[in-house]
Amino acid sequence: MTQTTLWQEQQQTNQFAELCNALYERELSLLANLDTDNVKAIQGRLQSLPYYVQKAAHAMVNTDSPLILDSQNAAWTAKQSRTMPLSGQSVADVWQWYQSSQLVVGLVVPVKEGSHIVLDCIDRVDNANNRFRTNIHGWFGVKNVETERCQLLKPTKKIMMASCAGHTWQNDAPCRPIIPSLRELLLSCSINWKNLKKPLMLKTTH
């Protein structure tokens, strides 16, 4: 084992620890401020938290991404464009992309929610009715690419980087980024940057 390899492993270990600390702090703060009386739901989320925090931290350290990892804040960073990168995102363009793709369960897709873009993933494909379902935003088809609360986008490198980094815009001007949820951070590590039509499998051990 070379000195360079040792340094890289130590660096990864330090990043992993920083990520875990930042993710725990953020998730516990969210749980503490939940407006709910459902104690069992809170207990369930607390029990599963170590698994998902460590899974996200490990994936973020080991993923091959064009984004810059901010381990102290458990976030991705990237240069933000002056306006939301929506060129080539008409309804026809978007649906043509999805129709020309061999859609698979687990594919990470971007969805515009007002001033920012979030990550979702396909959890069901209905070829008979020419539609698919995403985990959070529900069904999309040729006639409902856009709804009152959201708009399905086609994955592009600019769009995916903006969503991973939490970029937001208001009145056609960039605003302070928001931190994506733990779920979105996990999805960000499933993006295949070399082929956006095929998701990656996450490694679950450290």
Rank of each mutant, 00 (worst) to 15 (best):
G114D: 02
P85V: 03
L153P: 10
M84P: 14
S90Y: 08
V61G: 03
L28V: 06
Q89G: 08
S90E: 13
E113P: 06
H137Y: 05
A78F: 13
C189V: 02
S188V: 03
Q99D: 13
S115G: 15
I191M: 01
I159C: 12
T36R: 02
Q43Y: 12
N14P: 01
Q8R: 10
S71R: 00
Q151I: 14
G138Y: 02
L23D: 01
C189N: 03
E27F: 01
L67C: 03
T36K: 04
L185S: 08
Q102W: 10
Q11L: 04
T156R: 09
E148C: 15
T204C: 06
Q10E: 14
W97N: 07
N171G: 13
A165E: 01
L107Q: 01
S188D: 08
L103F: 08
A17L: 03
Q96H: 13
G138M: 10
N21A: 14
D126C: 06
M201L: 13
S188A: 06
W76T: 01
D93Q: 11
L67K: 00
T2S: 15
L19P: 00
W193R: 00
A128P: 05
L34G: 06
N127F: 12
N192V: 08
P199L: 01
L67G: 02
I136W: 08
Q47K: 14
W169Y: 11
R45H: 12
H137K: 09
